[in-house]
């Protein structure tokens, strides 16, 4: 490297005072945070679905599964706190990015057109906001039991799952069946799962892109993975709600 050329490029040596903050504040840094936190939540959604699909088995299975989760104690809280942190970071950073992007575009076109932007990709912010409302409702509904629907949060004896020491177990099976008997609740869940399907169908592919893994040969598989995962989560969750709503599980 010649000294003359290096002198022409002083900025090549500039290092920000706090490098971690510089990464967090940068456009790509924020995208990495959104992608990684999104990945954590996708992992949770998949595990959550697999666990809940036990509703199609006799009540003993899902109740025992729930009891097992609750017995994890501090590990459970570690998962909850991590998930909550991922959730908060995801929401804050996407809102910040959306605001920055709105400012960066400035005046919009009189005539707007798109070539290949999907509907899901153009509605990420809105599907995300409605999902935020859904998540709050869902936690109030089933985790805290503050939403008064039929048979919610029944802390009754679930003999199949109980043991001698702690016979009073959370009867998850009864709670789910009771919760989704209400058509308004069920429809809200179904709509939310539809939005989650859309959100994932763009989000998963975006994650692969942001993490720098969407190479040319992987571009198409990444899209299929994204759509496949979105639909799998939708169909799996919708099956639970519909099976209960229409009385196949009672």
């Amino acid at each position: 490297m010649s000294t003359a050329a290096a002198a022409d490029a002083p900025s090549m040596r500039a290092v920000p005072p706090n490098r971690l903050i510089a990464f967090y504040r940068s456009s790509i840094g924020k995208k990495w945070i959104v992608a990684l936190t999104g990945l954590v939540m996708v992992g949770f959604v998949v595990v959550h679905l697999i666990g809940n699909l036990q509703i199609f088995l006799p009540p003993a299975y899902i109740n025992a599964y729930a009891a097992k989760l609750k017995s994890l104690g501090p590990v459970l809280w570690l998962f909850r706190i991590s998930l909550f942190a991922a959730f908060v970071l995801h929401v804050i950073n996407t809102i910040q990015l959306s605001r920055m992007n709105r400012v960066a575009k400035g005046e919009r076109y009189v005539k707007e057109a798109t070539v290949q932007a999907t509907v899901a990709s153009r509605t990420m912010f809105y599907s995300g906001l409605i999902l935020l409302a859904f998540i709050i409702f869902h936690i109030l509904h089933f985790t805290l039991g503050w939403i008064p629907t039929e048979n919610i949060h029944v802390m009754d004896y679930a003999p199949e799952a109980g043991n001698a020491k702690d016979p009073l177990l959370h009867n998850v099976w009864k709670m789910l069946v009771g919760g989704f008997r209400n058509p308004f609740v069920s429809v809200f869940y179904l709509v939310s799962m539809g939005l989650l399907c859309m959100h994932l169908s763009h989000g998963v592919e975006s994650t692969v892109q942001t993490l720098g893994l969407r190479t040319k040969p992987l571009a198409r598989p990444a899209r299929y993975l994204s759509w496949g995962l979105g639909w799998a989560v939708f169909l799996g969750n919708a099956a639970i709600v519909l099976a209960i709503l229409f009385g196949f599980i009672k």
Binding site: M100, N101, V103, A104, Q116, R122, E205
Partner: peptide, 12 residues
Amino acid sequence: GFGNCTNQYECE
């Protein structure tokens, strides 16, 4: 003041 990529690939 350029924005962030939201992976729609309209640019491409």
